[in-house]
């Protein structure tokens, strides 16, 4: 299958089922997908290679999404990395906080898989 773009996508969420779903969805579209079950694993990936797009859960037991976003923003390696938050925190204040932390997109849980894929595709194209 033709790769839609060259970069890698990293999905970080402590819920394995969500990981499973997102992994399946991206793979099906032909993206290069990496999965991390928690912040620590995510950071391992983030230190190794440049990631084009990160889908971040916020509420995670060890390192939360904001921290990871902060690390990405201050990392040289990940300077072109785009951040997408996926979270059950859905209040106006939370969403604003997400964008303030440098997100390009904020997706609320529960999400529609079709919408999510569409939004990601658009983001990736731009």
């Amino acid at each position: 299958m033709k790769k839609p773009f060259d970069g890698k996508i990293l999905v970080v969420d402590d819920d394995p089922y969500i990981l499973m779903s997102l992994d399946f969805l991206f793979r099906k579209k032909g993206y290069d997908v990496l999965v991390a079950r928690n912040g620590t694993e995510a950071l391992e990936f983030l230190h190794k290679e440049p990631i084009a797009l990160v889908l971040l859960d916020i509420m995670m037991p060890d390192v939360d999404g904001y921290e990871i976003a902060g690390i990405i923003k201050s990392s040289d390696l990940q300077k072109d990395c785009r951040i997408v938050f996926i979270s059950a925190k859905t209040s106006e204040a939370d969403i604003q906080k997400g964008y303030d932390a440098g997100a390009s997109l904020y997706i609320c849980k529960p999400f529609s898989t079709r919408d999510l894929m569409k939004q990601i595709e658009e983001l990736v194209k731009s």
Partner: peptide, 21 residues
Amino acid sequence: THELRTPLTSIRALSEILYDN
């Protein structure tokens, strides 16, 4: 509500996947 959203998310996502594929 937050706690409820998490399982709902995977249920929804997985259901949609099954439906679309």
